[in-house]
Nucleic acid binder design. Structure first.
Length: 259
DNA sequence: CATAATGTTTAAGA
DNA sequence: GTCTTAAACATTAT
């Protein structure tokens, strides 16, 4: 589930390919690969990825100051750097082949997500209306972005145009840690609530990265390892409840996350 | 076999 | 017009 921590792990995987000459590009499924063969030849062949950066759930592999390959992982994406001799993973959609006999495989089970090329990274970010990365904001900025929203707390947290990187799963954890009901309106939150949201956003995302974005490796006191309807709340006597918020499922403890 | 799943864009509603 | 919410997208695993 590619949210910010997952994409950060993919970024570290892509780092392994840094500064290797790009030899070719293999497209398995061109439906959602936005780089044609001719564009590759013109703009990427014989170049190298000089820098890998991330903004929210987007990964950028830069070949120059402004030019970059852009990857988004949808709900089921993955990225693997393997030797050329190794088999490409199942559901590989495209692969960059490097002169050092390694390949960077972009994998996705479902067809959400895409790989493309931009001539100007800043313009791309602006066009997508991506808010600042959840780990690159300070408390003041974080609070001012969320404060005036009239939507539910969970909806605001997962709005990529406000703050980018928080998805459906980690939003549940952040709200749990902050003891805030997911349907609580942001206009009803106190200053202490916002402070808590900021602190826990950092805490949860950093911990998740440390655990290689595997929710089951998070501490038992966290919600995510227990994220199932009817499970015991790891903090109080309550039972975990599942609800729908804007068509997505959310899990929380009705006892310690009061409205 | 029906259901739910990580995300974003789109359309619809208020 | 603006802001918020729900549906649609395509596919796989349970």
């Amino acid at each position: 589930m590619p949210e910010l921590p997952d994409v950060e792990i993919y970024r570290r995987e892509a780092e392994k390919a840094k500064n290797s000459g790009i030899e070719s590009f293999e497209i398995e499924d061109k439906k959602f690969i936005g780089i044609s063969e001719s564009e590759f030849n013109k703009k990427l062949k014989d170049e190298r990825f000089k820098e890998t950066t991330r903004r929210g759930k987007y990964l950028f592999l830069s070949i120059g100051k402004e030019k970059a390959v852009v990857m988004h992982f949808g709900m089921t994406g993955d990225l693997k750097y393997l030797k050329e001799s190794e088999d490409a993973p199942d559901y590989t959609k495209c692969s960059f082949v490097f002169k050092n006999k390694h390949k960077l495989h972009y994998i996705s089970k479902r067809k959400l997500g895409h790989v493309e090329f931009t001539d100007n990274l800043e313009d791309f970010i602006e066009e997508k209306e991506l808010g600042p990365d959840a780990l690159e904001t300070n408390e003041k900025e974080f609070v001012s972005l969320l404060k005036d929203k009239k939507s539910m707390a969970k909806t605001a947290l997962t709005d990529q145009s406000l703050i980018s990187g928080i998805g459906n799963v980690y939003a549940d954890e952040i709200l749990f840690q902050s003891k805030i009901h997911p349907k609580q309106k942001t206009t009803d939150l106190s200053d202490a609530d916002f402070k808590s949201l900021y602190k826990n956003t950092r805490k949860v995302l950093e911990k998740a990265i440390e655990k290689e974005a595997d929710p089951s490796k998070l501490p038992k006191s966290y919600l995510l390892p227990n994220r199932e309807e009817g499970n015991d709340c790891p903090r109080c006597d309550g039972k975990i409840k599942k609800i729908k918020i804007s068509g997505r499922s959310g899990y929380y403890c009705p006892t310690c996350q009061k409205k």
